[in-house]
Design a protein around this nucleic acid. Structure first.
Lengths: 129, 129
DNA sequence: CTCTTTGCAAAAGTTTTGCACGCTC
DNA sequence: GAGCGTGCAAAACTTTTGCAAAGAG
């Protein structure tokens, strides 16, 4: 396992919010100055293909990465500070079945994100962006 | 109401799948050759701000636009042909409440997309991308 | 006639590619 | 030592900005 890979994985594992390639590049260079931005892109691509990492999509910014959800986990994102939390939301199957029946689609995937204000930001009186 | 606006709205209203700025530009030029790509971007931005149009996010390609969902509608997308269908999925409130309780977040928004194969593509024996 | 929208050109970002070097194993 | 992973430079895209001209009301 190469140094750049280590650095990037560690950053993603240690962050409580999703990071974009440029952030990973800049943070990564703090502990490994030779790191290249291209490597960040290529590493994210591989980690995503392996299912270890996933993107977080906001109305703008669809290039931030996070540890991948496992099983029926989904992501909850604080729109104030960016903090992300996983939660379990298993009971979508009835909705998916009903929708499949009505639409005639064979549904093979679903994708749920929740947005909110985390308790810390709420205490500080911040408002959503 | 200007001609470019008309053209773009008509294309979006008449399409059964989400279109990206370049597609809108090229399709739009077929009936209004003076249309500029910048205008497409600016028009989409306005329509989105007005809540008339929304983006569809796939793992890649987060820049395709569609008529906005109304009320508790969500989008179902065929991963083979791109066809999009709206469906009603109102019963997420209990999940959102439970998640809010567990996480301490004040949840203010949610976002659900389903992926599948539509009946036409299924008949043709196409497989998901 | 006034104000907004448009189109062009160019700038600013972001992501991808080509290639030689260096590092794992 | 072989082969994959890396870094740099540059190319390819995508999206945004500035500005003068045209169009809508």
């Amino acid at each position: 396992m190469s140094r750049p890979l280590q650095v990037i994985v560690q950053l993603l594992a240690g962050s409580c919010r999703a990071l974009d390639p440029l952030e990973l590049y800049e943070l990564g260079r703090q502990c490994y100055p030779r790191l290249g931005l291209v490597t960040v892109y290529r590493t994210l691509e591989k980690l995503e293909a392996l299912g270890l990492v996933q993107r977080v999509h906001l109305d703008s910014h669809c290039n931030r990465y996070l540890r991948a959800a496992q099983g029926h986990e989904h992501v909850l994102i604080c729109t104030s500070c960016g903090r992300t939390v996983f939660f379990k939301g298993d009971d979508l199957s009835s909705l998916m079945n009903a929708t499949a029946r009505q639409s005639g689609f064979a549904i093979h995937d679903h994708w749920l994100q929740l947005f909110g204000i985390c308790s810390e930001c709420d205490t500080e009186g911040n408002s959503p962006e």
